[in-house]
């Protein structure tokens, strides 16, 4: 296929950012909703999510800076170096995303510090006290709501960013934002359940609820991917022309569908295994999905 548009060479760093950013946003938004609905029972899961989100966002910021051809100019995303004024283009997903990344980074850092304070891990009683006070005010509820909204944005804007191009496949459908939103949520749930399992302090019924949610979100992800594939159906024959691409696409489909298969009634000693396996599969499927989406614009050329 002859494509006049040039390849932006968004490869490994961007793939890692899309994935890790999605996991962080998904974990944070689900923790936020859990906080709003039943914070006490879900507390270990919430803390696990907050311990995951902030470091992942820090890594994401690093990935985005590294990917720039002029990394030291990363701050030009926010301010014009000549006029000194803020640069904000709400119609540009990358401009809006840069500002939202900053805001979401602050939210995740605040939640991370709160989790540390709750676990008495900071060792700084003076810092913990104002943090707890801040967290328990009415303002905190507003902050949590805003944090959830930000997390939803981060979870889905990368799809909108790809659509707002003239690249083949990416620009063909507006559903990429929906696909990434569902994928971020499912991988976020999977990361929290997996990490909580390692921490071992969550109530069994709470873990079960998160596993059930993970399964629902994966169903939503699969449905979104199918809808997206339908909207790009004219490009599918070109995309699937090579055996290598068929292999990657098949592996992605398998990884997404495997956790949805009905599982046998678990025997008591073996109950630990399936959930971890499902979470790992779900996380891998999310990574493969983003790889396939990013690579599709290259493969069709």
């Amino acid at each position: 296929m002859s494509v006049p548009a040039a390849d932006p060479h968004w490869r490994g760093w961007i793939l890692a950012y899309f994935y890790l950013g999605g996991v962080a946003a998904g974990a944070y938004l689900l923790a936020g909703i859990a906080q709003l609905s039943d914070s006490r029972r879900h507390l270990p899961m919430i803390r696990t999510a907050h311990y995951l989100a902030a470091p992942l966002m820090a890594v994401c910021a690093g990935l985005l800076v590294i990917d720039l051809d002029h990394p030291l100019r990363f701050w030009h995303m926010l301010f014009d170096p000549i006029s000194g004024r803020a640069v904000f283009k709400p119609w540009s997903p990358m401009s809006l995303g840069s500002w939202m990344l900053l805001v979401f980074g602050l939210f995740t850092a605040w939640s991370f510090l709160c989790a540390l304070a709750d676990d008495e891990r900071l060792g700084l009683a003076r810092l913990c006290k104002p943090l707890r006070w801040l967290r328990d005010t009415r303002l905190a509820w507003l902050v949590r709501g805003a944090g959830i909204a930000c997390a939803f944005f981060i979870a889905s804007y990368t799809g909108a960013l790809l659509t707002a191009t003239n690249q083949p496949v990416w620009s063909m459908s507006p559903l990429l934002a929906a696909v990434f939103c569902a994928s971020s949520a499912s991988t976020g749930a999977a990361s929290v359940t997996l990490a909580a399992r390692l921490r071992g302090d969550a109530l069994p019924d709470v873990q079960w609820r998160w596993h059930r949610l993970e399964r629902w979100l994966l169903m939503l992800e699969v449905a979104s991917v199918l809808a997206w594939l339908y909207t790009i159906r004219s490009a599918l024959p070109l995309l699937l022309r090579g055996s290598g691409t068929q292999l990657v696409a098949g592996a992605t489909a398998l990884l997404m569908l495997l956790p949805l298969l009905p599982e046998p009634r678990p025997l008591e000693p073996a109950v630990e295994l399936p959930a971890s396996w499902r979470a790992v599969t779900s996380l891998t499927a999310g990574l493969c999905l983003r790889y396939v989406v990013l690579w599709s614009a290259v493969a069709i050329r």
């Binding site: 938004l29 609905s37 039943d38 909108a160 990429l176 934002a177 949610l213």
Partner: peptide
């Protein structure tokens, strides 16, 4: 024109955001 696709993407993302939030609220309800 990229800016014309942004609103469609936002709407599609919003639909799934609502579905994710509903699923989470149902899953976490007492």
């Amino acid at each position: 024109v990229p800016r014309r696709s942004v609103w469609k993407s936002a709407l599609a993302g919003l639909v799934n955001a609502v579905l994710v939030a509903l699923a989470a609220l149902v899953a976490f309800r007492r």
